[in-house]
């Protein structure tokens, strides 16, 4: 009798545990119905800059740059547009893993048909936890995990009153402005060597996946390395150069381009880790010219369909302090 009672209790607890787990999974599934990419397209988070690439009207971008903080610090699409008239966007986030880059490439190319996409190469070397691919798979199944921050959009009380609202298109097009100057003493970081720095094995498969997806979509993939005395060196350059050769893609290493004129005393905000606004202006001028010359992208500056891009300059000048904010 006692044994029977014990067994009954055990079964009851086991059933309760299963029901609880099912309820938890049900809750995650339900949340995923509300927090997903569809909602994001119209309501983009300001503080999660890379997602705002999805808020751009379909098929309006001529080039997209993917990567981590090196990318959003170095490339200013507005500067490049003002000078050469092609539209671009920097879809990048801090410490981005290549798994996320791959999913951004896929999501972006669902909505945009750029002629070329650039992959900033620093993220290729970022070592991932062995569980990162699993995390990506979970994210794909349950969108609430990658898009959970959309709760900030539900703002009936207008709490973030002084901020621009969250349903916005990024006026800086993914570029992150900072005018902080914090010099680098490591100016001699590109010492020639024949050595190569190894790319973690799982990362390589994601680069291949990006390459194959670009092929499928008919978009050219180009590797680009933004200037960084902290994260870049010649061994990394050799590795990416070899990979580019193997895949038959172009590779431009901005760390070797003296014509950019980076001054590491004034053009970095964090001792050479990233370039600041002054560095980004130089990089964007050089890189814009390179893209303009190599890829024959259209000039939209006189195109009324791109009037919103033509209005960005004034806003950009306010953000970058070139013009006082009258509002």
């Amino acid at each position: 009798m006692k044994k029977l009672k014990f067994e009954k209790q055990t079964i009851k607890k086991a059933v309760a545990s299963v029901v609880f787990v099912l309820l938890a999974i049900g809750m995650i599934v339900l949340l995923s119905l509300f927090f997903n990419e569809e909602r994001l397209e119209t309501q983009t988070l300001k503080d999660v800059k890379p997602y705002s690439v999805l808020a751009e009207p379909d098929n309006t971008l001529d080039a997209v740059i993917f990567g981590d903080s090196e990318a959003f610090a170095a490339f200013s699409p507005v500067e490049m547009y003002n000078k050469y008239g092609f539209t671009s966007f920097v879809c990048a986030s801090a410490s981005q893993y290549i798994t996320l880059t791959e999913s951004f490439v896929r999501e972006t190319l669902e909505h945009q048909k750029p002629k070329v996409i650039f992959l900033e190469t620093n993220a290729i070397f970022r070592k991932m936890n062995s569980t990162k691919p699993l995390e990506s798979a979970i994210d794909a199944q349950f969108p609430v995990f990658p898009y959970h921050n959309l709760w900030k959009n539900f703002d009936p009380l207008n709490i973030n009153e002084n901020e621009n609202d969250y349903c916005f298109r990024d006026d800086l097009k993914g570029f992150k402005y900072t005018a902080i100057v914090n010099k680098s003493d490591n100016k001699d970081y590109m010492k020639k060597t024949k050595e190569k720095q190894k790319i973690p094995a799982t990362n390589t498969s994601y680069v291949y996946s990006i390459y194959e997806y670009c092929q499928e979509k008919g978009v050219e993939l180009v590797f680009v390395s933004a200037p960084s005395t902290v994260h870049w060196n010649y061994a990394k350059h050799n590795t990416i150069a070899a990979l580019a050769k193997k895949l038959g893609v172009k590779f431009i290493d901005l760390n070797l381009e003296d014509d950019i004129g980076i001054n590491w005393n004034t053009d970095t905000c964090d001792r050479g880790d990233h370039v600041n606004y002054y560095g980004a202006t130089k990089v964007s001028a050089f890189f814009g010219k390179y893209v303009h010359n190599k890829f024959d992208l259209p000039d939209h500056r006189n195109d009324s369909a791109y009037s919103d891009w033509n209005q960005l300059k004034a806003k950009y000048d306010v953000v970058t302090g070139k013009k006082a904010n009258k509002t």
């Binding site: 809750m27 995650i28 988070l45 986030s93 410490s95 996320l100 995990f145 990658p146 959970h148």
Partner: peptide, 18 residues
């Protein structure tokens, strides 16, 4: 379940967070 909800929705994880 509320604790789980708080972790999932208000957790500072994913893109934009380190």
């Amino acid at each position: 379940l509320g604790m789980l909800l708080v972790i999932i929705l208000f957790g500072a994880y994913g893109t934009g967070y380190i």
